[in-house]
Design a protein around this nucleic acid. Structure first.
Lengths: 142, 142
DNA sequence: ATACTTGCAAAAGATTTGCCGCATG
DNA sequence: CATGCGGCAAATCTTTTGCAAGTAT
């Protein structure tokens, strides 16, 4: 059983064949499909259709929304006009995007997280979410 | 003449009545520091139409794209499904978005900027750009 | 049982584009 | 005067939704 499927069970999200497949594909979106992390709905639909041709894209949209609202997967809105998803990990992380290759490196920095909270508070707000993307260039090592 | 109109001239962007008006409205969209508005195309269209009812929304889309590509204004894709724009400023700043109202507060935090640079370096990269968005909820004050 | 799900197609919302008369440099 | 621009409507693209039929618990 996929990790996402487990989370559905433990959170009382009703399971169907379609959802199980989408959960499976999302769970494998890192290892099995190589560097193609963060698939968008269309890509997800294609992958799922390899396993079951009858799953409609509407179902993928509905499921992905459901999983996101249940805190099981995470949506990203990169500058492309469409959303991309990844399984939610225990520990939150941000992304560094290689401006040359498009490669994505994930990282965590507690100090920055802490400062963000403080900035929000200073402005009279309570932080509920954030997005941090670093665009960078690889340093050549000779 | 608006600041944006000036930039158009200096960069050889052809000017028309429509573009002049859109430039004017965009230039005026920057009010007090700390809370200027970042209008979306629809809002921009409404404001421009107060001055000239005949400007079509297609023209606003085309102009906003043109200005962005000329490095005159900046596009943001916040988590709303539509783009919002602001005049490009000399000094970089980040955004806090009120998740309830969509209101935007700008801020600068040198410490966070510094840490970002360090994080990138630690990963073997040289930071060239970044995006930080805080999604937050206003703290009610009694 | 019954409330939730799904597939399909249509709808909706944001943005782009083809066509063609018109304005700009 | 040649080239690019703008208005309009139609076309795209992504995402949502109404409906009728099927399914999970």
């Amino acid at each position: 059983m996929s990790k996402i499927e487990e989370k559905c069970k433990s959170r009382g999200v009703r399971l169907t064949d379609q959802r199980r497949l989408i959960a499976k594909v999302m769970s494998e979106s890192k290892s099995t499909y190589g560097s193609k992390d963060h698939p968008d709905v269309d890509e997800l639909h294609k992958r799922v259709n390899l396993l079951d041709k009858n799953i409609s894209i509407a179902t993928v949209y509905r499921t992905v929304k459901l999983f996101e609202e249940a805190g099981i997967i995470e949506r990203h809105d990169f500058k492309e006009g469409k959303s991309r998803y990844e399984p939610l990990t225990e520990e939150h992380h941000d992304h560094l995007i290689d401006v040359k290759t498009g490669e994505i490196v994930e990282f965590v920095d507690k100090e920055i997280e802490e400062l963000q909270k403080k900035v929000a508070e200073k402005l009279g707000y309570k932080l509920v979410d954030h997005k941090l993307e670093l665009y960078a260039q690889k340093i050549k090592k000779n």
